[in-house]
Simulated scan of single mutants.
Amino acid sequence: MMFFVYHLQTYSPKNRAWKKVIDHVKKYEYILIKDNLSLDALKHELCDVVNRINAEHPKTKRMQYTAGPIDNSRTIRIEAYVMSGGYPDTIFIIDICKVRSVYQFSEKTNLLEQKGGEA
């Protein structure tokens, strides 16, 4: 099964740690993910980036990371946020959908249509 990053939203960085995470995440906008293994690797890579940057900036509020499906849909959401005043202050959101099918142009298909479907 293939996946596609169809939505990536980042928010204004409030410190250098957030900026590092946002700069890293921006390179994943509109990418095609070839299979489930690659999707899992992407999730773990982003989690590792958030954890590494948390370790580099111990005086800032700890960034939290989540990844999972959105309510009964075929969309997977990856996000990072900081809890501030009891509410999440979002750093980034990535929405990933399953690719339904792939379209590929073929001249043979067009020739068959012109001949009325004869092969």
Rank of each mutant, 00 (worst) to 15 (best):
A67M: 07
V99H: 02
Y30K: 14
T75W: 02
L8E: 02
A55Q: 11
E29N: 13
Y103A: 09
T66L: 10
L111C: 02
A119D: 09
Y81C: 13
N72Y: 14
D71R: 15
I91V: 15
V25T: 12
I76L: 14
I70L: 15
I94H: 03
G86T: 11
Y28V: 12
M83N: 13
D89R: 12
E118G: 05
Y28W: 01
F4R: 14
H24C: 12
R16I: 09
V82A: 05
A119K: 15
N36Q: 15
K26E: 10
V50H: 01
A55L: 07
K115G: 01
S101E: 00
T10A: 10
M83F: 07
D71T: 13
R100E: 02
P58W: 02
I53C: 03
R16M: 07
V21D: 03
D23A: 10
M2A: 07
V82K: 09
I31P: 06
I91S: 08
Y65M: 10
K43V: 14
T109D: 06
I53Q: 02
K59T: 06
E107A: 05
K59V: 04
T60S: 04
R62Y: 00
P13E: 01
I31A: 04
N51M: 13
K59F: 00
V21M: 06
N51H: 03
R16T: 10
S38M: 04
V21I: 13
T60M: 08
I33R: 06
I31N: 05
M83V: 14
I22R: 08
H7N: 15
A17Q: 14
T66G: 07
L8T: 08
R74W: 02
G68C: 11
F105V: 04
T90R: 11
K98T: 07
V21S: 11
N36H: 10
S38R: 14
D35L: 11
M2N: 09
K20V: 04
T109F: 08
A80I: 10
L37V: 13
A17H: 05
S73G: 07
S84M: 08
K19H: 06
Y81N: 08
G85M: 09
D40E: 13
H57W: 06
A80G: 11
F3V: 09
E45M: 10
L37N: 12
A17D: 03
A119Y: 14
K98L: 02
F105M: 03
F3G: 06
Q114I: 09
W18M: 10
M1C: 09
I96K: 05
D71E: 13
N110D: 04
Q114R: 13
K61I: 07
Q9R: 12
A67P: 01
P88F: 05
S12M: 11
D71S: 11
E29Y: 01
L39S: 03
A119T: 12
D40V: 12
Q104H: 04
